[in-house]
Amino acid sequence: VGEWSCVRCTFLNPAGQRQCSICEAPR
């Protein structure tokens, strides 16, 4: 899977990211 949706702000982050780029919530 290439990306994941943040549970807090729904931003689509790259699969390699451990936390959201926008709101910094953990994956």
Score class of each variant (00 low, 15 high):
Q19C: 05
I22V: 10
C20W: 00
I22L: 05
Q17C: 04
F11E: 03
S21R: 06
S21A: 06
C23L: 01
I22S: 15
S5E: 05
S21G: 04
G2P: 07
G2Q: 10
R27Q: 14
Q17G: 11
Q19N: 05
V1M: 14
W4T: 15
E3S: 03
S21Q: 12
R18N: 02
S5C: 01
V1C: 08
C6P: 03
N13V: 11
Q17K: 06
S5L: 05
C20H: 00
W4D: 15
Q19Y: 01
R18P: 10
W4I: 13
A15N: 11
Q19S: 02
P26Q: 09
G16S: 09
A15E: 07
V7I: 13
S5D: 03
P14C: 04
E24C: 13
A15P: 10
A15F: 15
G16V: 08
C20N: 01
S21K: 02
A25R: 10
R27V: 12
E3H: 04
Q17Y: 05
C9Q: 01
R27Y: 07
S21W: 05
A25S: 06
Q17N: 06
S21V: 03
W4N: 14
E3P: 04
P14N: 06
C6A: 02
C6N: 09
G16A: 08
C6M: 02
R27P: 15
P14M: 14
R27S: 14
Q19D: 04
S5I: 03
I22R: 14
V1N: 05
C23W: 01
V1W: 06
W4Q: 05
C6K: 03
N13S: 09
C6H: 03
L12D: 08
S21F: 06
C6V: 01
N13L: 04
S5V: 09
C6W: 00
A25W: 06
P14A: 05
T10F: 03
C20A: 00
W4F: 14
C6F: 00
R18T: 12
A15W: 02
G16C: 03
R18V: 08
L12R: 04
P14T: 05
Q17I: 10
A25D: 13
A25Y: 07
G16N: 11
C23S: 01
E24L: 11
E24G: 10
G16T: 09
C6S: 00
E3M: 04
A25C: 08
G16Q: 05
S5K: 12
C6L: 01
C23A: 01
W4H: 13
G2F: 11
E3Q: 07
I22P: 04
E24Q: 11
R18F: 07
F11R: 12
W4G: 14
E3V: 05
E24H: 15
Q19K: 04
C6G: 00
I22N: 14
P26A: 10
E24I: 10
V1K: 14
W4K: 08
R18H: 12
G2I: 14
R18D: 07
E24P: 14
R27W: 12
Q17L: 08
R27G: 12
P14E: 07
T10L: 05
A25N: 10
E24N: 05
A25H: 12
A25Q: 12
I22K: 15
Q19M: 14
C23I: 00
A25V: 07
R27D: 14
L12A: 15
Q17M: 14
A15V: 04
I22A: 13
A15M: 15
R18L: 08
P14H: 06
C9L: 02
W4V: 09
P14W: 02
W4M: 15
F11A: 15
C23Y: 00
A25L: 05
E24S: 12
G16R: 02
A15C: 05
S5H: 08
S21N: 08
E24Y: 12
P14F: 03
G16W: 02
R27E: 14
R8S: 01
C23T: 03
P26Y: 06
G2N: 13
C20F: 00
G2C: 13
V1H: 02
A25K: 09
P14R: 03
G16Y: 01
S21T: 11
C23R: 02
Q17P: 10
I22M: 08
E3I: 05
Q17A: 15
R18K: 13
Q19L: 03
S5M: 06
R27A: 07
P14K: 05
Q17V: 13
G2V: 12
E24R: 09
F11L: 09
P26V: 08
C20M: 02
C6Q: 09
